[in-house]
Amino acid sequence: MASQTAFEQEVAQLIVDSLNLEDVTAGEIEPEDALFRDGLGLDSIDALELALAISRAYGVQIRSDDENNRQIFASLRALSAHIEANRAAS
């Protein structure tokens, strides 16, 4: 399995904690795998829950009219990169 960066580990833990994923540990989330439907099998409720956790932890507001909203949630790697970029910009 591909290794997670330190920040990806942090975001993976946030995903597991905020979504109460009982049968997955943070370390098991493949950085490049799909988070939704095909990978972890998350859905729109999870997306909303995750958005709340991200805004609390990093002050980054997720918006659905972002052109790249689908890409943001594409994988742990994409999500972590989005948070880092927007946290840095603010």
Binding site: A47, L48, L52, Q61, R63, D65
Partner: peptide
């Protein structure tokens, strides 16, 4: 027309 989803969408 739109369907705001995330809290920030609703606020805007």
């Amino acid at each position: 027309a739109g369907r705001p989803f995330y809290p920030e969408d609703v606020r805007t």
